[in-house]
Design a binder for these strands. Structure first.
Lengths: 242, 242
DNA sequence: GCCATGTTTTGACAAGTCGTCATTTTTCGG
DNA sequence: CCGAAAAATGACGACTTGTCAAAACATGGC
């Protein structure tokens, strides 16, 4: 029993080592920066051993993406627990999102890489399932807040609109913005001096447009966001803005 | 003169041939599907000749992306010329966008591929400039409509907000949505049955939120979109929905 | 301590790709 | 038809990925 567990722990540890080494490699040089020979050399294992853990490069990448999604889940779950109105709790999710990309730009970069058909297609079904579960967890936390808001009478969706469709909009807006942001050096030249502020503003437009009370014109969500940062993400906030 | 022009035309033609062959290769197998040896073999030129035109794979990719952006520009410029209120003209841009991705999913796929740091970085400054110019052209057409709307009193931006920041929001929302859409098979399971309709709705929420008159609750923009499809994009509309 | 058996690790190898560049072929004015 | 300049060629070096037969190692019975 004890020996078996030890062996398994060793395997687990090695897997973690591989991933820990892989992440900076992948960030640094994209798909090509991730080099199986180099991983083997630097960890002083043979290539065959690395391939015992991950049957191809893509499997390492999706494993990294799953780690990322889990870390994000953790942020989201802390945010969703914020005590406040439904829209304040959604604001908390927004804070979590922004803090997450600012604190771990690497994690977001991995998400963009896995978001490519030709890479995604080479991953195993097992890990794809894991990934979808992790993604669903985030989505459900947010749509849960939307449902709470509806139940509480803070917001009413137009006929035939599901909470998920609204969440899809928020998700698209933030994901798209971060994507553009992470590659487009040209945004500043084009007249967007503070992209993160822009994103927040645009999210508020969207929520105001759907009539989620209290509107951002009736309530100071900036102050709320400040409080959320201090109360829930104190340490992380320090790291980014300290 | 005549001979020089003929030679140049031949070069131009060959370049076009390379790109035409490259596009499906790139779409089919992503970055790896694009194979310089195969391009040379299929066009019956030597590899060296291919490399005379494009100094590396990434240069082919960005050239394809520039073609894409120019095609989109063309769609946008037709849309922007629609006769109607400022928000109706913006609706026309939305129609152009949607039609564009539905008609040419390949083009959008190329945009996603070039939107990766490790590929972008290997491209030449010359082509990067071209790309940014083409991107700027689209952006300016849209921000022009926003300015028209402001001048006409249809919409007022909050203090300190530039038209570009609003356009950034619209761009993020649509780009993000199409990105998620193009890789996530899971959207349907998550409760978003008609993603394109969702995108349109979410855009309207955003514009309503900023108070762009007439609001989508006061005016039937679906009917307008229908008219735009028929008047401006008749042929394209036929192809997608016929 | 020692052998037999099953498991893990190893690294040489096959297959494939990119980008180069010395050599060959083509072009074209005189 | 010649000879110089321009263009095209493809063998080559350097590097990757993923495989697999062989070697090293662990384990348990005696």
């Amino acid at each position: 029993m004890e020996t078996l567990t030890r062996k398994q722990r060793e395997l687990k540890q090695r897997e973690a080592d591989i991933l820990a080494l892989s992440r900076p490699m992948l960030i640094e040089g994209g798909y090509h920066g991730l080099n199986m020979d180099r991983i083997a050399a630097e960890l002083e294992y043979s290539k065959g051993t690395i391939y015992k853990h991950f049957s191809c490069k893509e499997e390492i990448i999706i494993a990294l993406a799953i780690e990322t999604q889990e870390k994000r889940s953790e942020f989201f779950s802390r945010a969703a627990a914020f005590q406040g109105s439904s829209r304040e709790r959604l604001t908390a999710i927004g804070v979590a999102c922004e803090l997450f990309v600012r604190l771990f730009p690497d994690h977001f970069a991995v998400e963009q890489i896995i978001n490519s058909r030709s890479i995604w297609e080479k991953t195993s079904l097992d890990r794809r399932k894991l990934m979808q579960v992790a993604e669903g967890k985030c989505m459900h936390m947010v749509s849960g807040i939307v449902r709470d808001g509806i139940a509480h009478g803070d917001v009413a969706l137009p006929d035939g609109t599901t909470p998920e469709e609204l969440v899809f909009g928020l998700w698209s807006l933030t994901f798209g913005a971060y994507s553009i942001l992470s590659t487009g050096e040209s945004l500043a030249n084009l007249g967007v001096k503070d992209p993160f502020a822009s994103i927040r503003t645009n999210v508020h437009h969207m929520l105001n447009g759907i009539g989620w009370r209290p509107l951002s014109t009736e309530h100071d969500y900036n102050a709320v966001a400040q409080r959320i940062s201090e109360e829930i993400f104190a340490a992380e906030f320090q790291l980014v803005f300290g």
